[in-house]
């Protein structure tokens, strides 16, 4: 057994995030579910970010089925529940609807296949996770699509596995540096507990906390606008961007003299859309970016085969990536053989 299964069990939740389609996220999910000790632990599985993205009605390409084991709990949409290929006991039907109907929670009474499509908004995911705690679930596993369409973020989980591979880039050194950038973002430190409590409920706008701890909204500033003018920011100690953090905004902060010492806060790594160059420049200048929620990155998995059939050298890829990020890297398909 690969070591990360033991580590997963130290946390109450795990998300598995693919950096691109065909980077082996589903393989990784299957791998983990096959190996979790379902006899001693209550395990629940769901998926986020389904809104028309993973079930493509146009091309008819469907999200792959997951094989659940007897005793596992799962959250999926009404539509996919009706198509299940296992025997299961219904536990809850939520009030919230997704594009595929309401979210249904059930327990598998036999092993079998199911399509997963769970809560797709941040609040419904939060409620579903709460429901799982009420059911005394030991570990929630989230199939965490990275999606701008969905407000549900995989960063709500305590731990995370990233799946990367040739589909993300077919050149080893590019793939390593692109993946390392995401790993840097996932590993950003949390801001202070006080800031987390105050900023978490704010889901829109740009906010400033001054040296005396006064929180105020910067009405005139949106993080996406091109002409951002920070004025009277001398007292600003923390700058919180509730929405997406993009290059233009980061550059303005970096070049603003009164914001030299500022702590920049974003919700989590999924809200950061800055290039590695801007990110590096910001750090070099002494800038700090912190987050409100983060997952502990346990491992990275790679799929060396690109959708077009091109295959990277698995050992070299694992070695170089592991060296760059300081974490174990696995090729699950190769390990299986």
């Amino acid at each position: 057994m690969l070591p990360f299964i033991d580590e997963i069990l130290r946390y109450d939740s795990l998300s598995i995030v693919g950096l691109e389609k065909n980077t082996g996220k589903t393989e990784c999910l299957k791998y983990v579910l096959d190996r979790l000790p379902v006899q001693d632990k209550r395990i629940a599985v769901t998926s986020i970010g389904i809104d028309g993205e993973t079930v493509d009605q146009v091309t008819r390409t469907q999200k792959p089925e997951i094989v659940l084991r007897e005793g596992m709990y799962f959250g999926t949409s009404e539509m996919h529940y009706r198509q299940r290929r296992l025997v299961s006991e219904l536990i809850d039907v939520s009030d919230e609807t997704t594009s595929l109907g309401r979210v249904v929670t059930a327990r598998a009474l036999t092993g079998g296949k199911i399509l997963l499509s769970g809560p797709s908004s941040a609040s419904s995911l939060r409620r579903w996770m709460g429901e799982m705690r009420r059911l005394d679930i030991d570990l929630v596993v989230i199939d965490g699509a990275l999606s701008r369409m969905s407000s549900a973020s995989p960063a709500v989980s305590q731990s995370m596995i990233l799946a990367t591979g040739a589909a993300y880039s077919a050149n080893i050194s590019t793939l390593v540096s692109k993946t390392a950038h995401v790993v840097d973002l996932v590993n950003l430190d949390l801001t202070s507990k006080g800031n987390i409590a105050r900023l978490m409920p704010l889901d829109k706008g740009v906010w400033s906390i001054d040296k005396d701890g006064n929180l105020s909204s910067l009405e005139a500033v949106t993080s996406l606008s091109r002409d951002i003018h920070f004025e009277g920011m001398e007292q600003c100690e923390t700058l919180y961007v509730a929405g997406a953090l993009v290059d233009g905004f980061l550059e303005k902060v970096r070049k603003n003299k009164s914001l030299k010492q500022v702590e920049l806060v974003v919700r989590d790594f999924t809200k950061i859309f800055v290039s590695p160059q801007q990110f590096r420049l910001f750090h070099k200048g002494g800038g700090r970016i912190h987050v409100l929620q983060r997952s502990r990155l346990i491992a990275v998995t790679v799929n060396p085969t690109s959708p077009s059939g091109y295959v990277l050298d698995s050992d070299m890829l694992c070695g170089k990536l592991s060296e760059a990020i300081g974490l174990p890297v696995y090729d699950l398909l190769k390990n299986k053989q």
Partner: peptide, 8 residues
């Protein structure tokens, strides 16, 4: 009724 309806 289907299973979801019977559950309800």
């Amino acid at each position: 009724l289907d299973d979801i309806e019977l559950f309800e």
